[in-house]
């Protein structure tokens, strides 16, 4: 392994690093919004929309991101929906992540103690008020560790964007290998780059899980 090669490749990887972060950021924000909407529909048992969101969740969770991306990027243009690789990548990540976020959020809502709901009812709160002041604030707090785990999962999934030639980290490493045969150096930098993003997040996740086990609120 040559340090000079590594040093020379740093600027290229730096660009890919920021692109990975940027794509992850948009994808994750979109996924959280979609997940909130889906868990909302489920919590309030909104007819029809709730069934649609249940079907979406199953399809999204039971198919691989790679084939979702292929479908969005290669098959959609044939029915008139064309988008750039970047837009396809972000859309795919939102489509995949939305269902995982919905499960995480709904899991938190389900975790709110029954007695909390009952005491909300006992002071005369409506279903909407109960959600607004009791179930969602507590449930979202409970779902934070699961959301954080999904954040890590989704960032890792951006590595699959390479199949539609988005120049994120993995794609860049493969490019470097293809162009200059700097296999060891490129893979080394690639692993380090993911480690820089994911190790701090993983530590935060461990901390969040530990805090959740101890009971963030106490009672």
């Amino acid at each position: 392994m040559s340090w000079i090669v590594i040093q020379q490749s740093v600027p290229v990887f730096a660009q890919a690093f920021w692109l990975t972060l940027k794509l992850s950021f948009y994808g994750i924000i979109g996924a959280i919004i979609l997940g909130l909407i889906a868990s909302f529909l489920r919590y309030f048992k909104v007819p029809v929309l709730r069934q649609i969101s249940a079907v979406y969740t199953e399809v999204s969770r039971n198919t691989p991101l790679l084939i979702q991306l292929f479908f969005i990027y290669y098959a959609f243009p044939e029915i008139g929906i064309k988008m750039s690789a970047t837009a396809a990548g972000i859309s795919g990540l939102i489509f995949l992540g939305g269902s995982y976020m919905a499960e995480a959020i709904f899991g938190g809502l389900k975790g709110v103690a029954k007695i909390q709901v009952e005491s909300g009812l006992a002071i005369g709160l409506s279903r909407w008020q109960l959600a607004r002041y009791v179930v969602f604030p507590q449930g979202l707090t409970l779902s934070v560790p699961a959301i954080a785990a999904n954040v890590i999962f989704l960032i890792k999934e951006t590595s699959i964007f390479t199949v539609i030639a988005i120049p994120e980290l993995t794609n860049t490493a493969l490019d470097q290998i293809g162009l200059y045969y700097h296999t060891d150096e490129s893979l080394f930098v690639l692993v380090i780059a993911y480690a820089i993003i994911l190790i701090p997040l993983s530590l935060i996740l461990t901390w969040l899980e530990r805090r959740a086990r101890r009971g963030a609120f106490g009672n």
């Binding site: 007695i115 909390q116 009952e118 002071i123 009672n219």
Partner: peptide, 26 residues
């Protein structure tokens, strides 16, 4: 009014906000 066996205050709200939730919102 009803009070339960398990002290069931809303942990996300302060004491005062717990008490005021019903009077203000309901």
């Amino acid at each position: 009014g009803m009070v339960f066996q398990s002290y069931d205050l809303f942990p996300n709200l302060t004491v005062l906000d717990n008490i005021l939730l019903g009077p203000l919102k309901v």
